[in-house]
């Protein structure tokens, strides 16, 4: 399937959960927040939220700012 991942079209295996995606990207869930199609996904739901072709996924974290 193809996801729009942080604004970039990315081909990735089907039926991946948010947890699976973070694992694939080697991102620790503790310090990020995830939004799928503008809805925030709760950390407890990472393992049940299955991504679909065309989903817009945003993975955000904190960066330097004032």
């Amino acid at each position: 399937m193809t996801l729009t991942l942080n604004g970039k079209k990315t081909d990735i295996q089907d039926d991946l959960t948010v947890e699976g995606l973070l694992g694939y990207l080697m991102i620790a869930p503790a310090r990020v927040a995830v939004e799928v199609n503008l809805s925030i996904i709760k950390k407890n739901d990472y393992h049940t939220c299955v991504l679909k072709d065309g989903d817009k996924v945003e993975i955000v974290n904190f960066v330097g700012g004032g």
Binding site: L5, N6, G7, K8, L25, M26, I27, R31, V32, A33, E58, I59, V60, N61, F62, V63, G64, G65, G66
Partner: peptide
């Protein structure tokens, strides 16, 4: 300390995290 909310650099997971 204040921080900004921005996209994670997902394509370079070796980059440091502010935290």
């Amino acid at each position: 300390v204040t921080v900004a909310v921005r996209r994670t650099n997902i394509f370079d997971n070796k980059s440091d995290n502010l935290l």
